[in-house]
Design a protein around this nucleic acid. Sequence first.
DNA 1: TAGATGACTTGACACTATTAGG
DNA 2: CCTAATAGTGTCAAGTCATCTA
Length: 914
Amino acid sequence: MAVEAPAKHVFDFDDDDDDDGPVVFKRNNTLSSKQNQLNSEIKKASSQRSDGHSGSRAFYVQASNGQSSSSQKNKAFPSSKSLPVRSPILSPKASTSSSPVKSPVANFKTPASLNDHSKQALKQNKCNVVNEGKSPIKGATEANSDNDDDLQPLSARLKGVSNQGTKGASTSSTAQSHQLVSKTEIKGSTKDPDDEAPLSVRFNMKSSAGTSSSKLYDSDEKKPLASNSEQKCSTVKGKQEKSSMLSGKRPLDKGNCSDQSSAKKPKISDTPTAMKSKQLTMKAEKEKADEEDDDDIPISQRIKKSPPSNSKTSSMKQKAAKVVSSSLKKLNKKSKKEFKNSKYIKSTKVSPSSGDGQKKWSTLVHNGVIFPPPYKPHGIKLLYDGRPIDLTPEQEEVATMFAVMKDTDYMNKPQFKKNFWEDWSKLLGKNHTIKDLDKCDFTPIYEWHLQEKEKKKQMSSEEKKALKEEKLKQEEKYMWAIVDRVKEKVGNFRVEPPGLFRGRGEHPKMGKLKRRIRPSDITINIGKNAPIPECPIPGESWKDIKHDNTVTWLAFWNDPINPKEFKYVFLAASSSLKGQSDKEKYEKARMLKEYIKNIRAAYTKDFTSKDVTKGQIAVATYLIDKLALRAGNEKDDDEADTVGCCTLKVGNVECIPPNKLKVKSVYVPGKDTFDFLGKDSIQYVNTVEVELPVYNAIGQFHTGKSKSDDLFDKLDTSKLNAHLKELMPGLTAKVFRTYNASITLDEMLNKETKDGDVAEKVVIYQRANKEVAIICNHQRSISKSHSAQMSRLTEKITELKGVLKELKIDLDRAKKGKPPLKDADGKQKRNLTPEVLEKKIAQTNAKIDKMERDMQTKEDLKTVALGTSKINYLDPRITVAWCKRHEVPIEKIFNKSLLAKFAWAMDVDPDFRF
DNA sequence: TAGATGACTTGACACTATTAGG
DNA sequence: CCTAATAGTGTCAAGTCATCTA
């Protein structure tokens, strides 16, 4: 446990908490209380079907969180990912005292025995949670109200029209019987004791697996529209040769940014007492928190309990919701301020407020950031006109950055070279020998670089290990922050090293020098009473120190490429702060489910609106809903030229009438082709059938415009989002992406999962995952070795087929009592019985089948990136619940970092549906 | 109310570590 | 065991969206 000492040493505070176990690892159940807020803000009348008690209990510090990377080998770890309440680092004994026990069924291993601390933590946390609308009938009533047949989905309408899509589309809402009642009753009966019960009880798959089958609802409504669309994802990255206009539009490289850094919404000061009040036990805090929670929440509670969505009344409901939610916001804000300096402030740490510039933390301790090592000159000379040239270390450093990129695609981009030359020649100075980049030969430096790389590779594993450990030792203290007395991982504590800007696509600024960041560029954000991190570079100092607890960043600096933008240091994804907002995001998306029917009905109505703005909003919303497009903010001239929905150009959307003019188009749905560069200059190509009114509307938006004009000239993202907010509190364009992704996963999993072994189920999951990735257009570049791999596989299959043929011949002969043919080398093969041969044939056939399937999968997935959706779009609770229901170890789906990131979702009820 | 600013999420890809296959 | 493929992790660019400012 070498890490223990440094960790403690670094954050030496709270000594007296130690006897109570490191406070740091008693994570509060921020999520559930947070959820209350979410609810209060947006949830209102929406139903929450089988949210179960997710997040409604003690929170387990994810192991990885308290885990030093050096101890990751610990085998106990993977099995207890979500569980250790105490860090193995800080409390070694915890590993034995709360040793995880295998859950009888699946691998949701759970602690059979929690140590006292953990138990206490559980209890304490529980109280946070009770108010979470947990009435046993909650699920039942609301699920019932979620009457699918009430909902008139667009997809249903589309079905008549577009028969093209088959992808993952559930075809009917057959199984709509509301067996939910029984389900929730079962749930309810086990729930209450649950809270006290060992977690293993809740994870007991057998019990839940038995009931889960009763739950089969399916609704067209929830089906993503995109599932009906035929998607073609081109793999080609965009290559628009954009005439470079490095607009001088960024005049101010303001060194004055010091001002800006502070100009912000009103600061809420830290609790003065926060750090000092060591005598304040967690429990006391907790209780206060609960008190205040109770004070804070009731309205939302009431709101939540108000009748769930019902399409007939929903417009009224929506209005009401809006009002309530906004007034509630104000109320929250106000009360927060009023209590700011009271001791109640403590409580907000348990339920930091969402959004609205409210408090994100009460105490924050960290050690700042670590800087890349200074440049070490290598002395290798580049050749200019064939002659070696001396460079100063500064000049050499930048030259090396360029040299090292020799074999990248950037070298083929004039813009890159141009920008590089501009910045580098400045460093060289006016009278330097080097006057022309084209005459420079960087090869010596490049080769030196390759050599260095090779050297590194050749190092013995001991050396490598030592090096790694050295690095770890240096970084250890920066890796952690203590947020509200919980030790949390910091995400990116390393300051970005200098380099050449690698903009994607045709970025006008690619190749520019990204200068070195120094302490004097960096603003630190930290708790009022926390020690200010020592500046790691002697003689220098931070630019500024702030104590802003309305934000979550620990530090920032101005982006050297675009000085009015910032680079932030945040907590890692596994932190509870991130987890909170993650959960909120999915809750919002789930809420959309309750509104979607009305929203679709509304925009469908507006397709034909006389009001052009209305029509454009309608069509845009439709595209966002159906195609999962991004919103599409305006972009500056000094950014790559990419578009999203609101910034689509006329030329991006082509109408393909069945034959000629759209006016003529009869009662046939039109076809629209999309082709544009999206985020990261990834190309989007999609041909999709749309409803006739949409087709016509697009045609109208086209008229009188040139290809480069905005398709939606009356629209931008803020108007669009403002409109969406009227339909559902908190609704924005991106929620549709989350919604469509998660609902697709949920439905596919529940529809497709059959009996079978774990491997088969994992395949089902991957297929659903892939579907989502396609919907979201998550692409990856084809690996360099792809074609080689494919041909190798083909080869192998051919070979196997040859074997098969031979076997068949041998079988024939064996049946006739003849000996087998000689093998390729002319040697006599063994005599085998027909039975054995038949078995071999079957085996070979199976092998070939498998290989062909693998090959197909490989081909299908060569341009599809599954990771992004898993990380950002798929509600982890869907996955966790599915795993529980189907006895698939969660580790088969989530890797270590995802498990840490989704710790908040691990205790979801197996019956959870998105 | 548009545009600027600020904070945060999303995204592809490069680099490393681990595992599978020969 | 070694190599190649794959999985995992880190990096940092590029989005979204709320809020502030003029």
